[in-house]
């Protein structure tokens, strides 16, 4: 399993993502100017503040050469995981439905949260973001739920940002592109309190077509 981890100017979680990916295979960084993904089996778009988050979070990163390659990779069924800013980039690139807005209370949140995956399993994973309020029109939310595209929800009472229907992460319709606001790459070592993040990487690896 060869993972590729994108790096934009302003990314800041690519090293932890590399480490997390390295626990289940090999991993390499892909600089934003690269037009080829180099034969990777899965791609991670990591967290941070790509291109300074100018205009809107993720809005400029989507036009990078590497993201064009990621869009082709995803269209061909390749597994893609977007974390935090990476989730915002994938939404801006229309690879995932919906948008991430300023947190409801305008505060940057940084705390451990409990997530429930689609099967109801509980995962303890840190969240840290200022623009993580998931939003989509009501009919799109209904559609996502009907299609089983809601991958993660904040556990009851733990929604840190005002996300619609407690949604923390969604998949595309085909199921090979996944984005979430909390950071599974920061929860892969018992030393930092939880290894539940590994399950997210395993799920992405399993989505390889």
């Amino acid at each position: 399993m060869l993972w590729g981890v994108l790096q934009f100017p302003g990314s800041c979680d690519e090293r932890d993502a590399l480490h997390a990916c390295g626990l289940s295979g090999e991993a390499r960084l892909i600089w934003h100017e690269e037009r080829e993904l180099g034969g990777v089996d899965a791609v991670v778009v990591p967290g941070g503040f790509s291109y300074g988050d100018y205009l809107r979070a993720g809005a400029i990163a989507r036009f990078s050469p590497a993201m064009e390659a990621v869009a082709e990779f995803a269209a061909a069924g390749g597994p893609v995981l977007g974390i935090c800013n990476g989730f915002q980039v994938l939404c801006e690139a229309d690879l995932l439905p919906g948008a991430l807005l300023l947190n409801e209370d305008l505060r940057f949140v940084c705390r451990q949260v409990d997530l429930l995956d689609a099967e109801g399993e509980r995962l303890s994973i840190p969240a840290k973001h200022g623009e993580g309020r998931y939003w989509a029109p009501e009919e799109m939310l209904d559609q996502l739920e009907a299609n089983g595209q809601v991958a993660f929800r904040y556990a009851p009472g733990q929604n840190p940002n005002g996300s619609a229907r407690d949604i923390a992460g969604v998949r595309n319709e085909a199921g090979n592109v996944l984005g979430l606001m909390p950071h599974p790459e920061h929860a892969v070592d018992a030393m930092t309190g939880s290894t539940d993040g590994l399950k997210v990487f395993e799920a992405v690896a399993g989505a390889r077509a």
């Binding site: 205009l55 400029i60 801006e92 919906g98 948008a99 939003w135 989509a136």
Partner: peptide, 8 residues
């Protein structure tokens, strides 16, 4: 395409 996100 860029300056606005037509969804929001």
């Amino acid at each position: 395409k860029l300056l606005a996100n037509p969804l929001i």
